[in-house]
């Protein structure tokens, strides 16, 4: 299971000429960072990293704010249309993205949002809302409603009970939902390729994509780029693994 990641990391740490020599070395004889130097030299890699960080973080934060409310209501209230709304959220997970892609492009271009970071922030927020709602709803359902009822007896309003009592208990769940959204946004490629073409606005996946098309054989620099793109998600995943796995499976069982 680990081998592909090991292999790309090892490749990225080999000096250029060792990558293409025989016999293949499974353990690098010399470690070199020349591939990493090269990728920052031939492209504006730090700018792409910055763009990806900014867009993913902002979109995930907005998602959390929106989804905490929708999830809370979906977990605590029963009302007309409740089931249909839940179904509507679930169904988004099954729509094939390629059908919507062209109409989304037309929408964005009519709003003059092509080559504008806002289009990605908007779309990444939208895409993650349903799943985050489903995940957070599962976390809310695990907290007994007697908790906020007690707070409301003490004179809290519903909203302040939510923020003072429930949210603090929920923090691990919220953090893992945030990380989940961040990872998805960080990895997103197709919308970004459609919407962003300007060099200074490119996100990491878009940059890697044009990189592949330009320097198809430069596996040294490409492996370095891949490792750099992968590190944040792997680290975050390692931190939040337990909670995400829990949340994911709980949500699925309840659904």
């Amino acid at each position: 299971m680990v081998f592909p990641l090991y292999w790309i990391t090892i490749t990225s740490l080999k000096p250029q000429k060792d990558i293409f020599t025989y016999p293949i070395r499974y353990w690098p004889e010399r470690i070199s960072f020349e591939n990493y130097e090269s990728i920052f030299r031939i492209s504006k890699f730090h700018i792409y990293i910055g763009n990806s960080l900014m867009i993913s973080i902002v979109a995930s934060l907005i998602v959390i704010v929106i989804a905490v409310f929708s999830a809370y209501v979906m977990a605590r209230y029963r009302f007309r249309g409740h089931g249909q709304i839940m179904l509507g959220f679930f169904a988004t997970q099954m729509l094939p993205g390629f059908i919507s892609l062209s109409s989304l492009y037309m929408m964005m271009s009519s709003m003059n949002l092509i080559n504008n970071r806002f289009s990605l922030i908007l779309m990444y927020t939208v895409i993650m809302i349903p799943f985050s709602t489903i995940l957070l709803r599962g976390f809310f359902q695990r907290i007994p409603s007697s908790l906020e009822e007690a707070a409301m007896m003490d004179g809290c309003s519903r909203i302040s009970a939510l923020f003072r009592v429930i949210i603090p208990v929920m923090l691990p769940g919220i953090a893992s939902t945030f990380i989940f959204a961040f990872v998805q946004n960080w990895n997103e490629l197709f919308l970004a390729v459609m919407f962003i073409d300007d060099e200074p606005l490119k996100t990491l996946p878009v940059a890697m994509n044009s990189f592949v098309q330009k320097f198809d054989v430069d596996w040294g620099a490409m492996s370095a780029g891949t490792v750099l793109s992968v590190i944040p998600t792997v680290v975050l995943f390692a931190v939040a693994q337990r909670f995400i796995v829990e949340g994911l499976t709980q949500g699925a069982e309840k659904g």
């Binding site: 990895n187 792997v234 995943f237």
Partner: peptide
């Protein structure tokens, strides 16, 4: 489980 955190595109490249 870590492969789950990687993007399909990068997996493809690897």
């Amino acid at each position: 489980f870590y492969s789950w955190a990687l993007s399909g595109f990068l997996i493809g490249l690897i």
